[in-house]
């Protein structure tokens, strides 16, 4: 299947600093791609480049077109929710729905109203009168009503409490994800999206540190809880990282046969957060 997005050798410089330095990866159809990286890694810059909101070097192909040249045409099939409240604060919720319906050919006013009717948000409310969680619910309702192929979320749950965060991802799972739609999520709250992810891109200082399907990630990486007596043997296998534990240490290995590791201790799948810290720590 043709990927929905192809990012090839994308570079972006702010002054002397490279915010993106040769970033390449693909977003296949039906994928949930997690874009994970520390603050200042270049995640937002990359997502903005994907949306055609800034100039860059390299190539981005979104649904077969250049987002820089065809931004507004592409936005018929691409949805975006940003890390900050970007909804116009002076507007009422129903005005926002009516405006979106007027300018978006794939927008269903009824779907937006139905989704919001299940929340505490009143369509007569001003956006500025809503809590941050409610604003995110409104934005999500708008995006869900757009019938898009690709949804780009940039820290969508930042600042939300655990109840809103949980509802948010539940709604995405129930109402958005299908085989031909893809989702790109950039977030710090890795644990919450780990179960959703089909692909993982770790990014740091504008460079991709890891880009794999989750199946491959679990094939490649193994976490081993090693007893104190086996530490030297574990270190000899060139682990990605070593973290001290109560009775020994936890090692993460990349591409080492599990049969070889079983002699050292208990083997398990590393969590994405664990992997993220290990790989970022390796530099």
């Amino acid at each position: 299947m043709t990927p929905l997005a192809k990012i090839q050798d994308v570079r972006k410089r702010y002054g002397q600093t490279w915010a993106l330095d040769g970033v390449s990866f693909e977003v296949p159809q039906g994928a949930v791609l997690g874009l994970i990286g520390p603050n200042g890694a270049g995640k937002t810059t990359l997502l903005k480049a994907m949306l055609g909101l800034l100039r860059f070097e390299g190539d981005i192909d979104l649904l077969g077109r250049s987002p820089r040249r065809f931004r507004h045409e592409l936005m018929r099939s691409v949805g975006y929710i940003s890390d900050v409240g970007i909804l116009p604060r002076w507007m009422r919720v129903d005005q926002l729905i009516r405006y979106s319906a007027a300018v978006h050919p794939n927008f269903s006013e009824q779907v937006a109203r139905d989704i919001l009717s299940k929340t505490e948000v009143s369509t007569k409310s001003l956006i500025k009168a809503l809590s941050k969680g409610m604003m995110t619910q409104v934005h999500l309702a708008l995006v869900m009503a757009m019938d898009v192929k690709l949804l780009i979320l940039d820290e969508p749950t930042l600042g939300l409490d655990i109840v809103y965060r949980s509802r948010f991802y539940e709604q995405i799972l129930q109402e958005f994800l299908t085989e031909d739609r893809s989702l790109v999520i950039s977030t710090h709250q890795v644990e919450e999206i780990e179960s959703l992810l089909t692909h993982l891109v770790l990014i740091d200082q504008g460079k991709v540190r890891l880009c794999e399907a989750m199946d491959c990630v679990y094939e490649r990486f193994t976490a081993v809880d090693v007893a104190a007596s086996e530490l030297a043997s574990a270190r000899s296998l060139s682990p990605v990282s070593e973290k001290n534990a109560l009775k020994g240490a936890t090692f993460i290995f990349d591409g080492v046969e599990e049969t070889q590791l079983q002699a050292l201790g208990t083997c398990r799948r590393p969590g994405v957060a664990e992997l993220f810290v290990s790989i970022m720590g390796r530099g």
Partner: peptide
């Protein structure tokens, strides 16, 4: 104002061209 309150990011996420 739309740049100052950052709502430009929302407006640009809709299929409306800059010319329009």
């Amino acid at each position: 104002q739309e740049r100052k309150d950052r709502s430009i990011l929302f407006w640009k996420s809709l299929p409306v061209s800059d010319l329009d």
